[in-house]
Amino acid sequence: MTSCASRYRRRGLLAAGATAVLALTLAACGSDNSSAPAADQAAKPTASSHAGHETMPGMDHSAGMDMNQAGANGLSDTKQGYRLTSQDTTLAAGKPVAYRFAITGPDGNPVIAFAPDQTKRMHFYAIRSDLSGFQPLHPAMAPDGTWTADPASLQPGSWRVFASFIPDSGPRKNEDFVLSRTLTVPGDAAATPLPAAAASTEVDGYTVTVKGDHTAGKAAELTVSVAKDGKPVTGLQPYLETYAHLTAFHEGDQAFAHLHPETKVSGNRGGPDLSFHAELPDSGNWRLFLQFQSGGKLHTAALTLHVA
């Protein structure tokens, strides 16, 4: 099991050296076989998709470029011989659905050995092309290596799903991977603009404020503060080994970033300020999703950060 610090050291600059890479991150992690409530829901579909071809019996994968840039920002289904494969290219709208997938290794066989990462062997995310409808999930794996994620009701549009994992065997043992595929949810998709950049947002009575001066390609500290009823919150509870998870997606290409706070966990007394190391290589808007736990309840806050 890895700590926040060790996970950061492995994943920390996942985005560095990539053109469309990510750097911030809310560790979006829900409970096994269930999704956290979507932070927002309307979406604007895009034409981002790949042609599929088979890599294992009964499954296919969308053709991805096995290159450092694509692998670093999570926008490819392939990296260093590992592939995210699935037969599911469409999912029904407006009801709970099951998305089945597998990770195949360099030998073409399904990977069944995964190292726990913050108590979970697989972190899975679904988000629409306009960066709405964010859902973090922890799917279940069958003995044959098939994973099943259960997103909550999806709105029509183009979606991208991300699988974050660490192989526990093979030539890339203990390395971090983030792979993704696109899928379509049929129906009329309402186009909703990305919310304007803002320094704070409200969720479930909490005020979440983000501070930091961010320029593309330069490392900087990002501080997240949590308050309620005008008072600083000092009772944040650990969730998956940290006080908060921060996940970020870049507007336009959905490049992914996953980063954990540098704040040391010490009992049920986290907050109000949490520090994150951030290095955003791309300018433009990033949609941030922060998950934190208080009073035994998990909350998800979303806001837009502009990077010069």
Rank of each mutant, 00 (worst) to 15 (best):
L222K: 02
A227L: 04
Y206G: 05
Y206K: 02
A190C: 09
L222E: 14
T201Q: 00
G187N: 04
A198N: 10
A191L: 09
A220Y: 10
L222S: 13
L222A: 12
D229W: 08
E221I: 03
A189N: 06
P193M: 06
Y206W: 05
A196T: 11
G212Q: 00
A196K: 12
T215V: 05
K228A: 13
D213A: 06
T207R: 15
D188E: 13
L222F: 09
H214Y: 14
E221A: 15
T201G: 07
V224D: 12
A196I: 11
A189H: 09
D204M: 04
V208F: 07
A219Q: 10
H214W: 13
A197T: 05
S225C: 05
P186Y: 01
A190T: 14
T215A: 07
G212R: 03
V210T: 06
D188S: 15
D188P: 11
V210E: 03
A198C: 10
T223V: 13
T207M: 06
A190R: 11
A219C: 08
L194H: 06
Y206F: 15
E221Y: 09
T223E: 10
S200T: 09
S225P: 10
T207H: 06
T209R: 00
D229H: 03
D229Y: 05
A191V: 11
E202W: 12
T209E: 01
A190V: 15
A190W: 07
S225T: 14
A189Y: 07
L194C: 02
T201M: 09
G205R: 09
Y206A: 00
A189P: 12
A227G: 08
K228N: 13
G212Y: 01
G212C: 02
T207N: 04
A190N: 10
A197F: 03
A191D: 14
E202T: 14
A220K: 08
T215D: 07
